[in-house]
Design a protein around this nucleic acid. Structure first.
Lengths: 162, 162
DNA sequence: GCCCACAATTGAATGATTCCAGAAAGCCTG
DNA sequence: CAGGCTTTCTGGAATCATTCAATTGTGGGC
């Protein structure tokens, strides 16, 4: 994530975003959007907890409904790395991907490697009409990597198995 | 690993595969491997049903345990497209990816676009030690695509949103 | 053929998500 | 700024995939 672009989106008024999307402005929706602005890649229950910290009692269903509505309206993106519950983020529409830590499940944004959707160029699509290529990088985050003297070199080590 | 080797893999005796991996040869394991050879990308319950068709009664746990053991031993690969239960396949170790139909969830294999792991070249990895790049293509399979005269052109239509 | 670690069975629990029916709140019109 | 329609939120319960725990069963080396 190159912080500059997000910051702009994050600073947009949640109410305005909702109205522009043709959605009703409700307290839970505003709170969910604000939470996502502060916690990118948050789990559903993380969001629910944060929202309750702001508004008081908010039902779990409300949070699920809000996230689904926002997702459907294109205001948030839902990501589901294998083995992890759903996470949500505000960055939509830009071609970016994710790195996921195999140990702790932590996620970071990664802008697409080559300039323009390189991964869309699948070799044989079996007749599928492809509209999106989603890349998930798997590895270990800084905290979960073994100390540097245990292995040759954390970055340049060769053992890439896929 | 190229297709030829995979095809050969599918034709290898399941018992032999198990022994080579240091696993005990049991009826459920053999049956699961045979099922996967016939049904690539099968769900857990699809596998369970097929196995029961061959062996009679087999517990659901047995199927889960077998799949976990095979996965851990590197004999099968577990794939989990967002919104879908886990699926398993025999193709392991080769650098291939998947196309998933947004409508019916059908999956097809896609060999990596560029020759050698293009997607591993993430722009900024945030310190993550990446060992795998997993690409999921999303679109519509042939059956789920609207008739050709309804839309401009299924393949060349421009609206690629990610 | 016997033993024993490893597998499978049985039964129940977990965790994320969804369904349902009724109550509440947002938003447009007058 | 009040009425009424619609959408959203609440609370409780259900579902689905998956996992846990304890007992029973079996493959394969000795």
């Amino acid at each position: 994530m190159t912080l500059t672009e997000n910051t702009s989106r994050l600073q947009v008024d949640p109410c305005q975003l909702l109205r522009e999307a043709g959605l009703r402005v409700t307290q839970p929706r505003v709170a969910v959007l604000s939470t996502l602005a502060e916690h990118p890649h948050a789990h559903t229950d993380t969001i629910a907890t944060a929202v309750r910290g702001t508004l008081g009692a908010v039902s779990t269903q409300a949070v699920y409904d809000v996230l689904r509505a926002l997702n459907h309206a294109g205001l948030v993106r839902r990501i589901e790395p294998a083995g992890s519950p759903a996470r949500y983020e505000l960055r939509v529409g830009d071609n970016h991907h994710h790195v996921v830590c195999r140990d702790c499940g932590d996620i970071a944004d990664v802008d697409c490697a080559v300039g323009h959707r390189p991964c869309l160029d699948a070799s044989d699509t079996h007749g599928f009409a492809i509209d999106e290529a989603e890349v998930t990088y798997w590895g270990l985050c800084l905290r979960c990597q073994p100390p540097a003297d245990d292995i040759p070199h954390p970055i340049t080590q060769g053992a890439v198995h896929d």
